[in-house]
């Protein structure tokens, strides 16, 4: 199992937090929020792929449907 996803998510989270505070200090509130939104979307993609794999696996193991 690829454990790297956890580190990727943590890295993107920290990066987004830093980016948010930097952009905010420059007075660009809009772009700070957009950067946060982009980070959340990228991480959500990864999490959803992981979850879809998990659900498929569970469905095949327990013969659900």
């Amino acid at each position: 199992m690829d454990v790297g996803v956890v580190f990727k998510i943590a890295g993107i989270g920290i990066l987004t937090a830093v980016l948010h505070s930097v952009l905010k200090s420059f007075g660009k509130e809009e772009q700070a929020h957009l950067a946060t939104l982009a980070g959340v979307t990228v991480v959500l993609f990864m999490v959803i792929q992981l979850l879809s794999g998990l659900f498929d696996y569970v469905r095949s193991v327990f013969s659900l449907y």
Binding site: D2, V6, I9, A10, G13, H20, V61
Partner: peptide, 29 residues
């Protein structure tokens, strides 16, 4: 990482939890 991220961005902390739970689940499957 959860403690670090929870301070600034709660969304990422939650998604970290989900990813960890999924990885453990897939490992045990």
């Amino acid at each position: 990482f959860y403690i670090v991220l929870k301070e600034q961005k709660g969304v990422f902390a939650l998604q970290l939890t989900i990813a960890f739970a999924a990885i453990v689940f897939i490992m045990m499957m």
